[in-house]
Amino acid sequence: MNVRKNKLVSLAALGLAGGLALTACGGGGDNGGGGTGNGGGSDNGGAGAAAGAYGELTGSIKGSGASSMQAAQTAWTETFNGMVSGEGGSASVSYNAIGSGDGRAEFLNGDTQFAGTDAPLDEEELAQSADVCNGGQAFNLPVYISPIAVAYNLPGVEELNLTPANIAKIFDGKITKWNDEAIAKDNPDADLPDTQIIPVHRSDDSGTTENFTEYLEKAAGDDWSYGTFETWDADGPSVDGQQSGDGTSGVKGVIEGTEGTIGYLDASQAVELGIAKVEVGGEFLEYSPEAAAKVVEVSPRAEGREDNDIVVELARDTEEAGAYPIVLISYVAMCDSYADAEQGETVKAYVSYMLSEQGQQTAAENAGSAPISDALRGDAQSAVDAVSAG
């Protein structure tokens, strides 16, 4: 089994225009922007650049990866590109949401300058990165915190409570009907139909799958025997009638179009779907950015990594009240050294913008995510400032 062990709410419905409006007052370091070498850190919200620094950026860069943060990346790239051009710079950033696994592969092949990934680069990938990192090494920084919604299509059922064990049994084909006694006892007020349950999973190599199955492994115990994995069709259970979708949008499309379905997807794209409440510490909890942020707060950093490589070991089995455990942290994977000075400075500026208070607010308004903490922001900005370019 291919197991990777090191590994956030309806949309605020403000639309991309709301996020872009944040930039109307200009894009220097005054209100959080990219950083090109003068520190920044947490004193100015991780801005990392003096006013006017964007006008000095000339490198055009590409990133690819996690579709979970597609809405955030769309807002980030359009906002950042607008700030750069507003300052007279000629740099630009693009992002292709092709999935975490493919994004990491493109980055490690040298096709992109950064990757977005729901599963951080592992030890083997970090070693491989020397080939594209100017003799240095890549590292991971958390930039996006979002709940993973357990979404369903069951007309007439407005609320649904699920325990970790029942979620595991549904996706393992051990619970096959919506009115199964195991589900009914936690939903006494719901009119559950005698309808076949159709589990829906990701068909691609997916960090969202990895985060979801890690939750099942840690929280469902013996009711989940498949461990943690990224590729469902290769390593997960095969259930009669199950369906799959390519990327987050693919899973959403299947659930929207088929009654009786249940699947997992980034909460930013679960708008207008039924969303289950998940049992945590004896209570059924609705997901929210605040609940996602809380589980990150009670989770430790992963051990055995370099100081600049910031990875969180999420407490999937927490019983902390108000902490929603089915969470993904999307990371940006970047190099600690770039041979091309123009590209390197633009990467540093763009990642600094994502980390900044303004960047995190833009993501929250356009993708319903939870802002990273001041402590995480400060540590991550220090890692970006140390990156060499040219």
Rank of each mutant, 00 (worst) to 15 (best):
G26Q: 08
G46P: 01
D385A: 14
V84C: 04
G39T: 11
K348P: 02
F80C: 03
K174V: 03
V239Y: 02
E158Q: 14
A270P: 00
A75P: 03
G322V: 13
G88Q: 12
W232D: 01
F284H: 07
G250T: 05
A51P: 06
G282I: 09
K174F: 04
E210I: 09
R202S: 12
A292H: 03
N140T: 03
S64Q: 12
E56Y: 11
E256C: 01
L162P: 01
G390L: 08
A72I: 04
Q113C: 07
T213E: 02
S288W: 10
A386T: 11
Q113F: 08
A267I: 09
A219N: 04
V150A: 09
M83W: 09
L57A: 05
G34Q: 04
G89D: 04
V157H: 00
G250K: 04
K277A: 14
R316V: 05
G241K: 09
A130R: 14
G34W: 02
G88K: 10
S100C: 08
T58K: 15
C335H: 02
M354G: 03
Q113H: 13
D131N: 14
S369T: 13
L126T: 02
G37F: 11
E256G: 01
A270D: 02
A97V: 07
E313D: 15
A370G: 08
G29Y: 01
A291M: 05
P164K: 02
I170S: 00
L216D: 01
G48H: 07
V312C: 06
D186S: 12
I255A: 02
Q361R: 13
I262T: 05
S249F: 11
